[in-house]
Amino acid sequence: MFFAPFDKFCCKIRAVFDTHFVTSALTSFMEVRDNPIGDMRLAVPISADFLDRLRRREPEALAEAVHEHARTLFRAARGLGFDETEAEDLVQDVFTTFLDRLDGFEGRSQLRTWLFGILHRKAQERRRARTAYEHDDPIDEAFESRFDGTGNWVRPPADLERLFLSRELGELIRGCMDVLPTSQREAFLLREVEGLGTEEICKILDVTVTHFGVLIHRARARLRECLEKKGWSQT
């Protein structure tokens, strides 16, 4: 009874603190997560006029398309692990296929989406490896082992702040990309490196939103495992 006013005071202090803490944490979170891809690059619709010029095989229109997309496609091919010569061949292959199939292109799809879709298929052909939906991926077990039966962390994310502040992070990620299976690597590359949206990536990879969720989840889980290992070895 004697402590009642004090308790009430403490409650008020806690309420103010909690509100402030939650608000500030929420604000920072919403800034980050409500716009998960900060500088997401939206696909620009292809105009009917430009499509006509391409169909007429106007050299200027072809040059325009090459200038607009070749560099991004090359970068993506390099990101998929092809060397410079292979990447350039691949990009040429993409444009050749694009021109061959131009008459069937109805313009409903964005040009970039279509070109990336061709790149995806050509890369698969070259690797002669089908992008399969691997039901049993060992990374799932590694992810599961981080939580107990009630879903609480038993092996929480390592505190890698020091490592992440380092400028070497990009290089570490580059090294870790090699451990990703092709399908996960493509999902990660299109989302995180090229910054494309979910809908466009699903069209390019010809997968459902759920399947893409599995791919990107596994890619990030693998990368985090790899980065943590590198972080531990450095500390």
Partner: peptide, 20 residues
Amino acid sequence: QIRAGARGLREGNEADGGLE
């Protein structure tokens, strides 16, 4: 942070000036 680091990967994979 991984997203921010991944964006840095673009730099190393750029084509030379004569590609187009």
